[in-house]
Design a protein around this nucleic acid. Structure first.
Lengths: 128, 128, 128, 128
DNA sequence: GTGGTCTAGACCACG
DNA sequence: GTGGTCTAGACCACC
């Protein structure tokens, strides 16, 4: 079961945050084809957003072919996403968690961590 | 010298992307107090955004006390951000880059990497 | 310039009617890549639907890759649709118009015409 | 015997599609007064819709005075629809089928055909 | 009770 | 002035 976290004031529209979190859950294997997404009303209850916002996110995912809405039944995952190798994922997760704890000991905040990762993913960005 | 990358269609407003990239440059030490931000017309030339959008980003940073606009001279960094320990940062960056290359060998895409990091930063998100 | 006709009570949602009419205009060459769609506010004025309904239609077309919204500038046709042979289209149109006038002389109503066409398009439907 | 085709995702509600197909069958003479409509469970079996959806369609037709439900016996056609001239209809159908095959040779798809017909039925729609 | 559609209207981002 | 986002709430279609 996934639970969405909507961060108002992050600048990113709420419906995109929800859609992104579904995609992440698909990538990490928390959601698999056939699974049901939380009902719109559930998301409303837990996240405090408006029903239409959730619908918009679900519809976006439907357009992308990732989920399928069945009238009166719910919204279901249609396709998976990302690497299939769950084991490697777990291993990498452990390593990353270790690195993260070292980074925090060195005084880095979440923002620093994101900045580092973004640079590492796209080294060209660095310039002097 | 920093160069901004504005990703239209990422959902995040252009002016927030610029402001965020300045903050990241401050965190990583690419920009330090006294440095000049690129002129608005330079950013316009390299990023294709509207001048007003750049101005809005710079105003936002000025409001946050990070930069200072000097009439006719440009916009200058006023304060630093983040950990002062440049050495630790370099070390952590190398480790992260190593981890990242392993992750990519395992077939992970950028989105998978972000998903993992987000989970590592906020482990409560994972749920049965 | 296209003008939309929204038939409330046809059962088909208004936003789908608008999207469909844009697609038809693309097919018939009334709209070509680079053309601007009518502004949301114009459609609202001429069709009496709600702005959000128009937005939903335009967004649907954007998802389909047919149009592109440019902030503050409007929504523009990105890709064409259908056969490129405008001449053949005109010829066929004339023939169809002739047939249609004969059909009407024989007393057929629009509904009869649609029923005939649907059968002709999908002859398997006929069964006894 | 009529068989219904329900196209989920056409946007048109399922019950309206069924009712419309009955009306079309009446117009084209596939159904005549006294004929029995397929039983609800038959439609369910062939179309995959919910029994209530079929009932709603039949009720709608009954309301329109076109059919009549007889308890325990089924639903029967009460009135005809459209032009009585079966011969003219057949002739027009042949002509239309001929035109259609030429249209397809010219590369037109079903959508193009519908677009043409819609324009021919309502020529005012075309505009500069 | 499920998702889907539409309205009305406020506010924001961008040119 | 352009499109985009979100809210609130009514109503519909379907299971």
């Amino acid at each position: 079961m996934v639970e969405f976290r909507v961060d108002r004031g992050s600048g990113l529209p709420a419906y995109l945050q929800i859609a992104q979190q579904v995609r992440e859950a698909l990538r990490l294997g928390w959601l698999a084809p056939g699974d049901r997404l939380p009902a719109v009303r559930e998301v409303v209850a837990t996240s405090g957003v408006n029903p239409n916002t959730v619908l918009k996110a679900y519809r976006e995912l439907e357009f992308a072919g990732l989920v399928e809405a069945r009238q009166g039944a719910g919204t279901f995952v249609k396709a998976g996403l990302g690497t299939g190798d769950r084991e490697a994922l777990g291993q990498l997760y452990e390593e990353l968690a270790g690195w993260l704890s070292r980074a925090r000991q060195a005084g880095l905040e979440d923002e620093d961590v994101y900045a580092l990762l973004r640079t590492a993913l796209d080294p060209d960005r660095e310039r002097e």
